[in-house]
Design a protein around this nucleic acid. Structure first.
Lengths: 225, 225
DNA sequence: TGCGATCCTATGGTATACCAACATACCATT
DNA sequence: AATGGTATGTTGGTATACCATAGGATCGCA
């Protein structure tokens, strides 16, 4: 099977539109395009070296994702976010992530526990090295393991999309070092609860983690606003 | 927010793209475009009397919404759905709708209670008249009241989008008449719990309602599959 | 000098034509 | 009959043209 996969003409059917979509999404998520910044179509065409059709279709997708807003007669801009929205998103994450962690704790087998432990270590490493992009990636990986193991693929989709809307906040909260209990420790608690096949403890650990993240986010957003 | 929309000078800056988007979405949700049916761009252009640009951009949006899938080198088709997905969607709805109903029950004031009661009556009327489209609309209105009153706008967005994916299923479950406890009665229970400002009872009522809907959906989907 | 009308430009919205890549089905030759 | 080529249909991608509108700059008039 593996050999076959290797033989396969791994021609990435990645279309130009998808590349542009990724680039633009990353530019927004990473803050390269500031919140509220206007996205002038023809300018983007020049920057990306593609035609308007491609850019416009990518914008439609981002609009549906909630990352881009269309101002009537003005064109697209990077979506803005306020605390009222962020709060709701954190609340939804609470529900979905607790649910997933609990389900995962019930189903977790040896293989998953091993992977989850590795992911936790990766988070600790990235955190210790203060490498924020790696930290984001490792945290995402951690949660993806949990949601996938729980079989909650659609919930994971939802969470990812919502996270996109608060990406800047996540960057800030993850980078915050003045937490009383460091973030990686929280992850370790979640990991431990799942490894112990204890759904209640897993849900509680997720609750603690998100509760803290919510508080930090609230403080950061309120003071910058 | 809603009031503002109502006040707004309803000069429809509704762009052609939005019209096409609505039409296509409705066509999919209502089953006019069958699940798995291919959506040939140029054919759609003819049917709708618009150019490819418009259709393509609408398709991008629907793709992001999860209503349309793109098959590489084959083009778009109406997204398919299986029970595994539907089950997850019902589970997410359980979480979000219980949460919203509980929050709504805490906040509910006289004005909301009155509106909610009216919405419940509308559901009963539509159900008695066996008018499914009206029933769907009334049910949507009912839930929108709850989510809006709870301030859970983003959760409502999520629920609506997820409901879009299981629209055909909803049509079937709502139309099903062989439920032991009729759907409208369930709605009345939810309404009563909220009017009594009893969050626990509201959550329980939502649970009962969705649990039943889930069972019906499972049976329908499994037997037609 | 101040105000308003008018024109210009930038931008988005839409339509259309064109080409390349790919898949599929059909057909012809061997 | 099997192979290979061909025709067709579809999408992906691009370029371009045209129009409508918003916002600003300019100009003229009071």
């Amino acid at each position: 099977m593996d050999q076959l996969d290797d033989l396969k003409i791994t021609q990435p059917p990645q279309t130009l539109r998808e590349i542009v979509l990724d680039r633009m999404r990353n530019a927004i998520l990473s803050g390269r395009f500031a919140s509220g910044e206007r996205l002038v179509e023809r300018t983007l065409c020049d920057q990306l070296g593609v035609s308007r059709s491609v850019v416009r279709e990518a914008i439609r997708y981002l609009e549906a994702e909630g990352l881009v807003e269309i101002m009537p007669n003005k064109g697209p801009m990077v979506a803005r976010m306020d605390w009222a929205q962020a709060e709701q998103i954190y609340e939804i994450r609470q529900l979905l992530e607790q649910n997933a962690a609990a389900a995962c704790a019930i189903k977790a087998d040896a293989s998953l526990k091993q992977k989850l432990t590795a992911a936790t270590k990766a988070i600790e490493a990235a955190s210790a090295a203060h490498e924020n992009p790696a930290l984001i990636a490792a945290t995402t990986e951690f949660y993806e393991l949990i949601f996938t193991a729980a079989g909650h693929h659609i919930a994971w989709e939802v969470v990812q999309r919502l996270n996109g809307r608060i990406s800047r906040l996540r960057l800030l909260t993850l980078a915050t070092t003045d937490r009383r209990v460091p973030g990686p420790l929280r992850m370790a608690q979640i990991c431990a609860a799942i490894c112990a096949n204890d759904p209640d403890a897993a849900a509680q650990a997720v609750f603690d983690h998100l509760e803290e993240a919510t508080k930090i986010a609230r403080r950061l957003l309120k003071e910058t606003a």
